[in-house]
Amino acid sequence: MASDTTAAEGSSLVFHPMDQFIVKPLFGDGAVGMFTITNMTLWLALAIVAVIALLVLPTSKRAIVPGRGQSIAELTYGFIYKMVEDICGKDGIKFFPYIMTLFMFIVSANFLGLLPMSFTTTSHFAVTAVLALAVFLTVTILGFVLNGAGFLGLFWVSSAPLALRPILAIIELISYFVRPVSHSIRLAGNVMAGHAVIKVFAGFAAITVISPVSVLAITAMYGLEILVAFIQAYVFTILTCVYLKDALHPSH
């Protein structure tokens, strides 16, 4: 960090694009133990605060004609509710709070991560992998509980010619187990890449000639990141719904 101040010439430019992802104790120095309160704890707590500020506080008046905040809460509710209903069907509605939790957490964390100096929790594979594994385990267990062995029909494409079915079954099986990997890496990768690129552009701002271009590039990237923050939350949620539909209705 100390070397940043002397990084005026191009040759001694120092980039630390990944430093923003370091987990460190919030109070004092030392190692990060299992229960240490870290900067990540802070930003996770802020995500909870954001969820409360978005969905709980504006609806406290329960107005028939909604105000601005209540409209946003209702729109978010309707958006996810309709998504669950459209994709999973009527019997998927009971998973609505679960899916809403995922969406609200990811969207809050993504947008909080866009604040300067913040810590982006969703850029860590530990976070997204837990989310994706939770979805994967839910879908797999639920599929077998609801359909028994019939859940395996998901891998047996009955509409394909008989000769092709074993091959398709293998492909389906592989794609099924790749789901949690792609599900988690898609979110963390998008968020991490965007933040790292912004940091790299910010490093170039130390050179006077390049700095206007650098600032423009940061602005453009920031706009893109706002888009990504929402779209990745949306994609994660809609894929969760799609996977859940497989557990509820495994037939192709």
Binding site: V23, A31, T41, I48, M104, A126, L131
Partner: peptide, 21 residues
């Protein structure tokens, strides 16, 4: 070495959000 900590706090956060929602 951070992952245990991260997962611990994440699970607490998710449970909290789930209960609030």
């Amino acid at each position: 070495e951070w992952m245990g900590n991260q997962i611990f706090w994440l699970v607490i956060t998710l449970v909290a959000i789930f209960l609030i929602l």
